[in-house]
Amino acid sequence: MGRPREFDIESAVTAATKLFVDEGYEGCSMDRLVQATGVHRGSLYATFGSKRGIFVECLRASIVQGADRSELLLVALGELAARDEEVRTLCAQALTVWGEDAAQELGRRLLARAGLNEGSP
Rank of each mutant, 00 (worst) to 15 (best):
Y45H: 11
S50V: 04
R69M: 11
I54L: 05
N117Y: 02
L19I: 01
R108S: 09
G49M: 02
N117R: 06
E26I: 11
V21W: 10
S11L: 10
V97E: 15
G99Y: 00
E85L: 11
L90T: 09
A12K: 01
S11R: 05
I54W: 05
L80F: 08
G2P: 15
A46C: 06
A112L: 11
V21C: 15
A16I: 07
I54F: 05
S70I: 12
I63C: 07
A103Q: 04
T17V: 06
D8G: 04
K51E: 09
A67G: 09
T37Q: 10
Y25G: 13
R109L: 06
R69W: 02
A36M: 11
L19A: 08
M30H: 04
D22P: 15
L33A: 11
A12I: 00
A46N: 14
A82Q: 08
V21M: 12
L44E: 10
A36R: 14
R41V: 06
A76W: 00
R3Y: 08
E71R: 06
V75Q: 03
L72C: 05
S29E: 08
A112F: 03
M30T: 14
G38M: 06
W98S: 15
G42W: 09
R52W: 00
L33Y: 05
E100T: 12
R3F: 07
E85F: 00
S43T: 08
Q35T: 10
I54E: 04
V21N: 11
H40P: 14
E23L: 15
